[in-house]
Design a protein around this nucleic acid. Structure first.
Lengths: 242, 242
DNA sequence: CGATGGATTGACAATATTCAAAGACAGTGG
DNA sequence: CCACTGTCTTTGAATATTGTCAATCCATCG
């Protein structure tokens, strides 16, 4: 890790002084390699640590007793994971790596310190929380008021924009290690129906999914089909504390 | 307003010093009576103000161009509304009163000041944000992985617990001014199907809905049917900054 | 008294799930 | 190198769930 992912992430919101930067670097002092498929923390336990996801992909999920699950969030480069977990007596979600990843655990006391001594960073953390909320809201709308076809189109458009935000901007395709059962749990559909919708998208020449890569054949038309608008990804940092 | 609702709300998270309390009271300096059905702010505009909902009910919603909408949040006594809105260049949701309500607008600069000078309050605000996220997550699971019947049962159980949290604990029924079309937009269902499910709930002797009041005939069985667990409403305040 | 708008119901259509069967593919151990 | 295993992918048919449309009932209001 040449440069701290968290610094990169936070710097997108606002310029930071050296004192804040030094503090942020403390979050990634203990990188750990975690193999694909590891359940980093489970639902219902007490969590003392959070993680910076330095590289890789992971999901945050909600498991129901009958085995069905809903994926709530998909995390990649520079995201902080577990924020909600340490705020509740028992974690309300579980977290799992999708591919081999690098995670940096840090104690929740670092957050306390941040609030007490680094108001500007606390403000950014707060903004990042709002962004996370905005993503959740978009998911609620997706599940509540869009058809299976629209949901999938919307999800692909969103992931594309998020991936572009951290890397390879402009390429028509992007890596997304999501098998169909996972897509189903993201979109609130059955696995079979996901296959059908993927096929329909391909037939409409909007997007294809092969070997864990999405290719956008016609991004504009895809967004149209999804009723996708990117407002919810555009934050306003003007009111951050100095 | 004999006592500040916000003070009451924040005090549930942690004990506050006199300096913090005095600051909090500034949020409710300008109470405004707003009649039922008013759209306080619309989607897509730039918001400079937030609101404390001192009394009444309001909804936060997402409108789609075709007229369909999804209700994202239902707010009542002491909630701060518009937090997300001021964080984005254009507001991503609209807000509307359901009944005659009292709203206290305050400028977003008050938040900046809070982050800079009242770290303990900022910490509580952050926790409140986590709680809001937890509610959203429960909504995602509801929409993604529960049947229409379960969704309705879950919603009723949740509202009951939230209403109890601010007032009349223990009563079997509670006031909820939600006409069926609104319930539909909350639950991601059609209006007709809401009627069907309400009927089914009544037939199962779990709950009834009449004249804007829900009555829980068998709360335990209702929760069972909804797979309701209240973990997500139980925060852990231990790590708040002093 | 009729007009209005919400509440309610039933019939039918569209959407999505479930079940079943089978091919492609990569990894494993012999 | 091969058969074996499990996961991923694909398809079809039957079923269940939910949405749409139209009609009726009911209370309220002028």
């Amino acid at each position: 890790m040449a440069q701290s992912c968290l610094v990169k992430n936070f710097s997108r919101y606002a310029e930071l002084g050296e004192r804040d930067l030094a503090f942020l670097r403390r979050f990634e002092e203990k990188p750990q390699h975690v193999p694909a498929g590891t359940e980093v923390f489970r639902q219902g336990v007490s969590c003392e640590h959070l993680y910076v996801l330095s590289s890789g992909w992971c999901i945050v999920k909600y498991d129901q007793p009958d085995g069905s699950r809903q994926v709530l969030d998909i995390c990649h480069g520079g995201d902080i994971v577990g924020m909600r977990e340490v705020c509740f007596r028992r974690s309300i979600n579980g977290m799992q790596t999708l591919v081999d990843s690098v995670l940096c655990p840090f104690p929740k006391s670092l957050l306390t310190e941040m609030f007490a001594e680094h108001p500007r960073l606390a403000g950014i953390l707060f903004l990042a929380g709002m962004r996370r909320e905005a993503l959740l809201i978009e998911r609620v709308v997706n599940l509540g008021r869009r058809s299976a076809y629209e949901r999938l189109a919307h999800f692909i458009s969103e992931m594309k924009q998020r991936v572009d935000h951290v890397a390879d901007v402009g390429a028509a395709d992007f890596h997304a290690p999501f098998p169909a059962p996972l897509l189903a749990d993201i979109l609130g559909l059955s696995e079979m129906h996901v296959y059908r919708m993927l096929k329909k998208l391909a037939a409409a020449k909007l997007a294809t999914f092969e070997n864990g890569r999405f290719t956008l054949l016609d991004p504009a038309a895809l967004r149209e089909a999804a009723r996708f608008r990117d407002d919810y990804l555009l934050l306003d940092e003007r009111w951050l504390p100095a």
